[in-house]
Amino acid sequence: MAALRAERHIATRVAFTVIVVFVVAQVTWWILVQGRLATELRDTTLAAWQLDARTANAVLALDPAAEASLLARYAHLRPRADGTGLEVDPAARHEVERRNARTVRMLAFEGPFFALVILGLLLFIASSLRAERELKLRQANFLSAVTHEFKTPISTLRLLVQTLRLRPLGATRQQDYLRRMEGEIDRLERTSEQVLATARLEQASEPPPLAAADLNQVAQGWIGRLRPGLEVRGADLRVHYSPEPLPVALDGDAFGIAFSNLLDNAVKYSPGDAKRIAVTLERDGDLVMLHVDDEGVGVAPSERARVFERFYRTGDEMTRESEGVGLGLALVKSTVEAMRGWVKVADGPSGRGARFTVVLPRRVALAESDERGDDASGQRTSAALDGGSAA
């Protein structure tokens, strides 16, 4: 299949190159032909005027009084300075040469412009076809990935269930099989949730309702739910909360989907048994940031913009080793943007792995309310202390 796609790609490029060469050659030929025709028209006109001058002089030799009628008939002639006959008017000659030069200049500009327009249209068509081909390829990869993500856990579950039914196992082996079954069920659940969440986002006519919250508390709640499943998969999760409140406006469930996908992505692409994952929350001016750092394979700079596209996955679906269907990061991007934020990716702080950052606007009204509440609480406490001292 990959070889067939490569052959089609080469054939498309060859066809496009042939079309470009043909267009350039056709326009060049048109410019040369039209320029030659314009030059021939100029030479023919000047030659005809010279013939008119000789004819008029022959008539004048027979009838000198016919000069006025000849000048009226041949507007491009004038009397010679020495009075010996008629000649082609230099002003008329100059006008013919000027029009010829203008025609040549027009051809020199219009020809390349015409070629550029055609080449631009060809590039647009080629770009559209390439985008459509890539989308179809990604959709095909998505179908292959979904098939793999559902079929593999189901086959594993069937094998484990049959083993438990047909063979007596010790308690330790049974617990190991049950743990593996739970892991496969979690994998099915993650895949189903990604597909369903993507469908819900596409069908939603309005953005989700946002509620005021402290990102420290929201992240802490989700980490408490997600930590057991992540640690079973080998994650060594370390969380660094902000020492100050992080007031934001978000949809808790939607944020949980985005957060869980970022953590799942970090575990998925971290090699080894101990997968060190760091979550950091901080404030930068009027922005609130959540960083998810891993020490995995990282993301190449050339792919950082595309990893957030739907169905995009690096590598071939026939030879890939990582799980997933190519929706996780696209779902993160759509969800965060629905909460008026954005997501970005960079190298990890240690130079290894990747850092995915969710950026949300700080909810200023809530922050000011908290600050006023803290001030009022401090004033009440101070008053109480003063009253107690007075008593």
Rank of each mutant, 00 (worst) to 15 (best):
A140I: 04
A126E: 05
T84Y: 14
T84L: 15
S127H: 00
S127L: 00
K151N: 09
L116S: 11
R133V: 07
T172V: 12
V146E: 08
T84H: 14
R138K: 02
D89S: 13
Q175P: 01
A145E: 00
L160W: 00
V88G: 04
T152N: 09
I125D: 11
A131F: 00
A140E: 04
R138G: 03
V117P: 00
E95T: 10
R105Q: 13
I118V: 15
L157K: 03
I154V: 15
F113M: 01
P90G: 09
L119S: 03
L123K: 00
T152C: 13
R133H: 03
K136L: 15
F114I: 13
R98S: 12
L160T: 11
R165V: 14
T172L: 03
P112G: 10
L166Y: 13
T103E: 14
F150Y: 10
S127M: 04
L143N: 01
R167A: 09
L121W: 00
S144D: 07
E110M: 10
T152Y: 05
E110Y: 02
Q175G: 04
G170C: 03
L164H: 02
A101E: 03
V117R: 03
A92F: 00
L123D: 02
R93Q: 12
L157I: 15
L137G: 12
L166H: 13
L169Y: 03
L169K: 06
V117M: 09
H148C: 05
E132H: 01
D89I: 12
E97F: 07
E95N: 07
P112F: 05
T103S: 15
E95C: 03
G170L: 11
A171K: 02
A108H: 02
V117W: 04
G85Y: 01
L143G: 01
G83H: 11
E149P: 07
R173S: 15
D176E: 15
K136Q: 09
T156D: 05
I125H: 04
E149G: 11
